[in-house]
Design a protein around this nucleic acid. Structure first.
Lengths: 245, 245
DNA sequence: GGTTGACCCTGACCCTACGTCAGGGTCGGA
DNA sequence: TCCGACCCTGACGTAGGGTCAGGGTCAACC
């Protein structure tokens, strides 16, 4: 007969594991010898190995108990089930592996590839990292709060960067980050951007969740703050003069 | 800004998970609004996704905390590490899958293939399932208690079944299970087996752990009990007459 | 302006599958 | 007789949350 540690060793588990299985009723308590030690039969070892085979495969102990007392048919069905679950886990882990590999590269994980492409395009056009990060935050908020507008916004944004005039304006604005707010170039920029908004039938009003992004842009640079305030003011005047149809 | 449930949704986790991360200090507590609700920034969403990417890969939360504050070099090293661990898990799950598939077939899981082959050979020779099971138990005990003798015993056992005379004797003994202990055929069997033991220079003494198996064999059949007792008795007499060299 | 349903808050206990410690008895060999 | 390696029970600890309980908020609709 086997002592508890020999018994545990046949399945490569700890003594504590065995006692736990007794406690939860998964393994029946065996006979005791004269001094109260548990003594295990070879049959118990076979049972234990079956239990561990299932447990290793991730089957909860409570379900193992039921399984071992099930009809062969149900048992076979459950096995098929468990096997499919294992395959699913394997696929998932494989997926996690590829994600882990991308961890170094930041937003690739959190945004759809089209948006990542836009951000990369901005970088390659020479847009500052600060501006790119603000843009990224705005996409993240949009994704969380208003996901159905994303496809349209992606098209718009790409169209903007396809247009050399719009791109020039965007870059000029980006460069104004450390200009003095009263630099005459800022005035020209405001005029140009206002004209652009009129031409493209846009205005500076935004869905509520983007107000935060706008306020962070303003905080980042006094020049930007002046530009945004001026544009909002002019747009407001236009709306008052020509009310919504 | 995001409410806690919107924030949780960006990473596909529950609100409780977010609060748990605050509790353990993995995520910093964000600002609160006027009514005490937590409000999350887009940057927090990026951080959360990074955390979940690691957590999904099985990294303990405590280690994630350290990782996110680590140098890029250490971080990269840890990622390599985690990736290797993932691959190991995938391999293990693949292994469990193949084991699960064998669950129906019993001893294949618990004994080395050579022994399984011996048991299968016994079955194909027509040995009763009862006897096979007793034999299996004896191998299990041997494996747990005296594993280094197994290769030799495997060779011996195969040699026995390679010998037609020994096989005949074994089968005869197996068939005697329900004979009357005083059937004259039992006497002839005892004579034959005793002769066999002398010829092969074996005796019926066993290492302690096999005594149990022998006693279970005896319990299974009165005829077997008589055979074993008689053989042990004769072997004992021989040892007394011709003491160990 | 009242109600309804979907949120949010904290605090506390529950879960699995054991690990670990405390405090004590038992066994086998030197 | 003593030591180290076993064995026993009982109880608490662990990660990563789940799930109440008991209460406040918000927005929309009637």
């Amino acid at each position: 007969m086997l002592t508890i540690s020999q018994f545990a060793a046949t399945a490569g588990v700890t003594v504590r594991t065995i006692r736990h299985y007794h406690h939860v009723g998964l393994l029946p308590e065996p006979e005791r010898d004269a001094s109260g030690y548990r003594r295990y039969s070879a049959q118990a070892a076979v049972d234990l190995i079956r239990i561990r085979t299932l447990a290793d495969a991730g089957v909860p102990l409570a379900r193992i108990d039921a399984l071992l007392h099930a009809q062969p048919t149900e048992f076979a069905a459950a096995i098929t089930d468990i096997d499919a679950e294992l395959q699913r886990k394997i696929d998932q882990l494989t997926d996690y592996r590829s994600r882990i590999a991308e961890l170094a590269s930041g937003e690739r994980l959190v945004l759809p590839p089209e948006v990542v492409a836009i951000l990369d395009r901005m970088r390659s056009l020479g847009v500052s990292e600060l501006r790119v990060r603000l843009e990224r935050d705005s996409w993240i908020l949009m994704q969380a709060l208003d996901p159905h507008v994303m496809p349209q916004r992606i098209r718009d944004k790409n169209a903007n960067f396809d247009d050399p005039e719009t791109t020039r304006l965007y870059l000029a604005c980006d460069q104004s980050v450390d200009w003095d707010p009263h630099d005459p170039r800022v005035d020209r920029l405001i005029d140009d951007m206002d004209a652009w908004e009129i031409k493209h039938e846009r205005d500076s009003s935004q869905p509520g969740y983007l107000k935060l992004v706008v306020s962070r842009i303003s905080e980042a640079s006094p020049a930007w703050q002046r530009i945004l305030d001026a544009l909002a003011h002019r747009a407001q005047r236009r709306r008052t003069a020509v009310p919504d149809s």
